[in-house]
Each structure stands twice: as C-alpha cells, then as structure tokens.
Write a protein that binds this DNA or RNA. Structure first.
Lengths: 245, 245
DNA sequence: CAGTGGTCTAGACCACACT
DNA sequence: GTGTGGTCTAGACCACTGC
C-alpha cells in the first residue's frame, strides 16, 4: 500500500476560519469598539458560507465577550465605554453590598526603561521604553487602592499626566478612545502583603496593615499583553469578589 | 383602543424548556456524575423536538460545565472525580509555576448549631444542625492552608472525622461519591488579614503575618448552597490565580 | 414596514471511538 | 460497521428595533 499524504494540519472547521477572519477585522481596526459589524447575511455572502456557519462563529466570539449581539439592531464590537462594562475587570465590592464608586488621583506618569520583570510580562526587551503611572483610588471616605501601571510606550505615544487627568472615566475607556486599544481579558495573581512605609502613607493605614496585592496583565486581541498593573487594595471594608464556574 | 392582554410570561424558547428538563434529571439523580446521558437522538425523541434543539440545550449546559461532550462516546454528567477536575475550584499556584500538590490533615469534625452568618449563607435557620470541619493542607515543606468548613447536617448524615480521613482525594469527590452532591459553582470573597494566635500556630508563621482570607459558598444544581468554607492561605510562596474574561 | 438577530427543523455528511 | 457527537446547509418562521 502506497504512502498516503498525512493529515498534518488537523481538521479545522469552517466556522473556526470565519472566527479567525472576524478576529482579523477586529485586530486591524476595520470594525471599531462600539460600532456595528455587518449583518449575518452580509458576512455569509462575504465569506461564501451559510448564515448558520457565520452564526456559530459569532456565537463563540460573543461568548468570549469580543462581540455583543443585540436582537433587532445588529452585532456590535464590545467596548469598555458602555455602562455595564465600566467595571468589567473591577472585582472590588463593599462588604455592605452594592457597587463601589472610586475617584482616581494620578500621582505620576513617567517614561522609563523596562526592567526584566515588566519586559517579560509585556513581551518586550529589557530596556525598551515603557510608561509608568502611579495613582490612588478613593471612596468618599478614604483611599482604598494604590496602583502602579506599566504600558509599552510605542503603543501609548504622548500619554501624559495631564491627558490622564483630563479623562473622566475608567482607564480602559481611555485606552480605547485615545489609542484604539481594547482590552479583551486579563490574568491576576493575588497575594496578601504587609503595608510598607510608602503604602501605609498612600492608603492612610498603620504600618504593617494587611493589604491585598493584585498583579494584573491585560491583553488585547491576539493575546497581546499591553498593560501591567500592580494594585494594592485596602480590604478592611471591601473585598475582592470572585465567581468560580 | 381596547386593552390588549399583556404578554405576562415572556417568550421562552423550546431549548430553554429542554434545558430545564435535563437539569431536572440531573437534580433528581436520574443521571449520576460521571455517567452517560442518552444520545441526542434519544433525547430528541423523548422530548419530541428535533436533534438541533436538544443540541443547543446540551451546548449551553456543557458551557456551564454541567455536562461534558465527548465526540464518538456520548455526553456525560460532569464530575469532580476526573483528573482534570480535581483542582477545578483551587486557584492556588506556586509562584515558581507548575501545579501545587497538597496533603490534607483533618483536625476536627463536630456537629453544632448554625450561627446567624452560616445559616444565612446556607439558607438555613439559625440553630439548625450543621457539621463543622477543620483542616490544614500542606506542601512537602509546610502547612499552607487552614480551613473551616460548614455543611448542612441533613444532607451529610453520618459524616465523621474517620470517614474524611479514609477518603484519599479532594473533598468535592467525597461529597459526590458519598452524598450524591455535585458542586456546580462557587462564590468567593477575598480579603487580606493578619494572622492571629490560632492561625500563626496552624500555619507555622509569625504572629501578624499577612494571610489571604477566602470565604467560599459552593452550590449544587438549582443554585442550592451546600457548603460554606473559610480558608486562610499563606501566600508567601504561592498566589491565588484568577482569569478575567 | 423592512431589516436585524433568534428559534426550529430536516437532512447530508464528517470525525471519532469501540468492537 | 455502527453509533456517537460535530459540521454545514437551506429554508421557514418568530421577536425585536426603528423608520
């Protein structure tokens, strides 16, 4: 029996290829956050497949929160500028219930060279230029969060303290509006730590208070890491809420 | 214009009703964790709908991790006894990477009356009988976790220290095998706290070390809470890992 | 009203597992 | 080979939105 050509590339269903093409359009900013994408019928024609196949592709992208379906209106590119999405990645909740409302105060914004750890997380080379931001977030009563944020400078050109202070809403809305960068998902590593001098003064807590340390890496389309964030939370009157499914 | 009869009951698609019926079969233990459920064709006949409708119902239940599809074999009821599921709700990971392996030591198992907070979380009345368990979990080097667990006694009749110690694997496998109780999802509230006398001795840490406090409520089918768990983690060499989507 | 996504069906064929 | 889930199609009809 003669050798048969191997199925090297394992079987890839049509709808996966459609997903990839839709993703490419998102990644290339052909369709911007908040806008409608073409109807299922149009996409079916464009890709020369049936509506059902487009449907399955969109279903999965919607399940990953990349697209949002709205019956009667169309399918939209997900955006952090919507009301429901303002707090999509904020897991802090008051112990007493309800939603937390925080006011930002930016303390610093400087251009520095990436150290080894930040470079690794952002998939840059050590020494590549990054922007480092410092801020606190406060309730009506006291500061609750102290954060350091690192961004690759090549993607966030011209970002300054004053541009940050001029922006009213959450940072992920700012990234979207100003730098066409939409955050898709994030990974967090959480530890308990003791407040040091710097943290205790920023958060108005005694030295050696217990704090929650949250190291986040956030990704855009195509699993590209574009933000590193190291937050410390005062969890004495609020907590980090997580749902396990 | 005369009043029109209101659409009180909002439209409910067929596949939602099928989902509900499948859920009922899971809840009533007609199909047990780990076993196959009838094929899509059989279910389609049983519920008198098309295969595609059954398919959509199963798809959604599989997305919620209640069912597991295996091509060529059938659709199975999800179980914590599978290898991949042993650690489904354990988010602790070593800072150095890899999987953590923990050995349990049960310290206590007593029948008590529910206090207000546990009763609320388990949707019982204050004073109802609950089982309270205490344990530590250790790596090869040192204890990492101290946990208190509360279970409604009516569902976990005859649970004793020795039955716990006789079980080799994770507790959710034990609940399944012994009490036909499968955990579907959980909610956790996380805080940073300081070690007190008791915690510092159990975890072999100095007094006032920082610890992660994790309060979990776990639910079976039908959103029924059946376990409350208050864990404290030593996060000096491991962290709580979370993915935000 | 037309256009969008949402549901449901029926049928053909493919990929995988077991025997 | 037989039976399972997985993919793809085509067409009908429903529900919601906005003109």
């Amino acid at each position: 029996m003669p050798l048969i050509s191997e199925p090297i590339a394992t079987f890839s269903p049509l709808y996966e290829q459609i997903k990839a093409m839709i993703l490419a359009s998102l990644q290339s900013s052909e369709w911007l956050p908040g806008s409608v994408i073409p109807s299922e019928m149009e996409l079916a024609a464009r890709y020369a497949v049936s509506q059902g196949t487009v449907r399955k592709a969109i279903d999965e992208l919607a399940a990953q929160n990349l697209l949002v379906r709205r019956q009667g209106k169309g399918t939209f590119v997900a955006t952090h500028q919507e009301d429901d999405w303002q707090y999509r990645f904020l897991r802090l909740e008051p112990d007493s219930g309800g939603r937390i409302h925080l006011k930002s105060q930016f303390l610093a914004c400087e251009s520095i060279k990436a150290d080894l750890s930040v470079a690794k997380l952002l998939k840059l080379k050590m020494g590549d230029p990054v922007i480092r931001i410092e801020r606190t977030q406060s309730t009506a009563r006291k500061p609750i969060v102290f954060e350091e944020i690192w961004l690759p400078e090549t993607r966030f050109i011209g970002l300054t303290l004053s541009s940050l202070n001029a922006w009213p809403g959450p940072m992920y809305g700012f990234y979207e509006a100003t730098y066409a960068t939409h955050m898709v998902r994030a990974e967090e590593k959480i530890k308990a730590i003791l407040a040091d001098q710097v943290l205790s003064s920023h958060l108005q807590l005694p030295l050696s208070a217990a704090l929650l340390s949250v190291e986040r890496v956030a990704f855009t389309y195509g699993n590209k890491p574009v933000e590193v964030r190291h937050a410390r939370y005062d969890t004495s009157e609020q907590h980090y809420e997580n749902k396990l499914n």
